[in-house]
């Protein structure tokens, strides 16, 4: 209940029960932050560390992070690994299939800027060339703890979102800067 109480602006105790008051923003953001469902989507080395994060020692699910195999049920995409140019189009297509609001964590050096393949002829130099990125996570590969930290940072961002306008868009989307190439 601790999390819920943080999001409540008021609790009215009435005879026979009570009314909890909260702004719709804080209620919706509470729900969003506690069920960040990523897409089961691995590209390269970082995907193995992502799998380790889901597995027994790190147990990502306790943070509400539960992998979904289909983009239509996913909130966040972990771009875990090198984005080859041949993979750029499928990634854009997967991103477009995800429902709003959607987030992207660029995991590892390759997804940030090309990493050790910065001078390769067939690597996209950072996934932000093709889709907007919310959190950049450095490392080659980042440890599972680092991935958890990235999710915590994303949750902090989610908590600042407003539903004004009724579409739950992130501030960036509202400003129209989330145009795809």
């Amino acid at each position: 209940m601790g999390i819920v109480l943080d999001n409540l602006s008021k609790i009215e105790n009435l005879p026979g029960g009570g009314i909890a008051l909260a702004t719709s923003d804080s209620l919706i953001n509470w729900a969003r932050t506690s069920s960040v469902w990523p897409l089961t989507f691995g590209l390269a080395c970082c995907a193995i560390e992502m799998m380790a994060a889901y597995a027994s020692r790190f147990d990502f699910e306790r943070m509400g992070v539960f992998p979904r195999p289909t983009p239509r049920q996913a909130d966040v995409m972990f771009v875990a690994g090198t984005v080859a140019k041949k993979m750029a189009d499928p990634i854009i297509r997967i991103y477009k299939q995800m429902p709003e609001p959607k987030f992207v964590i660029a995991m590892g050096g390759c997804a940030n800027c090309g990493g050790p393949f910065y001078d390769s002829y067939s690597v996209v130099k950072g996934v932000d060339k093709i889709i907007p990125v919310d959190v950049y996570l450095p490392g080659c590969p980042p440890r599972p703890e680092a991935l958890m930290y990235a999710v915590i940072k994303l949750q902090e961002k989610m908590k600042k979102m407003t539903v004004k306008g009724g579409h739950g868009a992130t501030p960036l989307q509202a400003a129209g800067s989330r145009k795809l190439v």
């Binding site: 690994g81 993979m87 390769s120």
Partner: peptide
């Protein structure tokens, strides 16, 4: 080819000790 990173070309652009780092990323498990 969806993860083609041009590794064999990159080997030619690294010194021998540097190229070692790329080999890790072939079969990463």
């Amino acid at each position: 080819g969806f993860l083609h990173r041009g590794m064999e070309k990159l080997f030619e652009a690294r010194t021998y000790p540097q190229a070692l780092v790329l080999t890790d990323r072939l079969d990463y498990t």
